[in-house]
Write a protein that binds this DNA or RNA. Structure first.
Length: 293
DNA sequence: AAACCGTGGCG
DNA sequence: TCGCCAAGGTT
């Protein structure tokens, strides 16, 4: 329960000199632009998001512009960012913003959480980065920096605990302006310096205060949940089908689906799940396409 | 609540 | 080479 957070000053100073000039951080960005970046950045690295974000906001500068587009367009614009359901959710969120919030991205936590694709992290991030509201932002970067610098653990736990949230709250400056800088700065430190695999502790502005470094970087103790293998997975099969439908200008015949993945049983399972998820539409005469509604 | 959901780069 | 990792969310 630090009365003053000893990490705040050195972190803010480092951020002022080292922050990347990401376009969604520009002073003239809108809440919608920030919101689009947050959807795209869910599990997708910055470098791949950049061109997609620029194209998206140029085409759909406001939620209303996006809401007016047929549903297949966001999925096509999404390209190969991965997890294309995020494109559908962002599109649906834009329509809900128009229908329920007068076309303006809502600023309060409950309204944000009511939108598809916005969970605890994204709601807090939009509040902090788009509206400058004090909020507790806990993403993988921030959680890792806190785990190391404050708790002395190599990595955060598999899921956020109440204690962790309370700690993050304590660390977050109380003023709105300082809290927004803190959130952006500690996230940036986790992305650039305090990385998961090869942290650059020799460049870290928090090295003097870091508990993990002081204890000579002990290894993570606990169970590590491994990500499922992607090669040969249903996810890869779904991705292959989605790729075919994305690249096609309209619907495709069944033969095109069949050509996308050789294993028939797995292909049928993947196609069925895509249809069930509303990602693919089954059309007359055994044709398939992206839902255009 | 563990499992699922894409894609690509890096060590 | 291949497992790990990436500004999570949903069921």
């Amino acid at each position: 329960m630090p009365v003053t957070n000893p990490l705040e000053r050195p972190l803010a100073r480092w951020f002022a000199r080292n922050a990347r000039g990401l376009p969604w951080r520009a002073t003239d960005r809108t809440p919608w632009q920030v919101m689009v970046s947050e959807y795209m950045l869910q599990q997708t690295p910055v470098d791949r998001v950049l061109p997609a974000w620029l194209a998206w906001i140029e085409r759909w500068p406001t939620p209303a512009d996006c809401a007016a587009a047929p549903a297949d367009q966001p999925v096509r614009m999404w390209g190969r960012l991965g997890y294309p359901r995020r494109a559908r959710r962002l599109h649906e969120a834009a329509r809900r913003i128009v229908a329920d919030f007068g076309g303006e991205v809502p600023a309060d936590r409950e309204s944000l959480l009511s939108l598809p694709g916005i969970g605890d992290y994204t709601a807090a991030a939009i509040q902090s980065f788009a509206f400058g509201t004090r909020s507790i932002v806990l993403d993988t970067n921030i959680r890792r920096v806190i785990a190391r610098a404050v708790t002395g653990q190599a990595l955060p736990l598999p899921h956020v605990t109440t204690a962790e949230r309370l700690l993050a709250d304590d660390l977050t400056p109380r003023s709105a302006k300082a809290s927004a800088i803190w959130n952006a700065a500690i996230m940036e430190l986790g992305a650039l310096i305090c990385t998961a695999r090869a942290p650059k502790c020799e460049q870290c502005p928090l090295a003097e205060q870091c508990k993990w470094l002081a204890e000579d970087r002990p290894e993570y103790v606990g169970t590590v949940r491994r990500q499922a293998r992607f090669e040969g997975s249903d996810r890869q099969a779904r991705g292959a089908i989605m790729s075919v439908l994305r690249e096609a200008s309209s619907s495709v015949p069944q033969s095109a689906i069949e050509a996308s993945w050789s294993d028939a049983l797995q292909r049928e399972r993947a196609l069925a799940s895509l249809i069930a998820d509303g990602m693919v539409e089954s059309l007359p005469r055994k044709r398939y396409g992206l839902p255009a509604q």
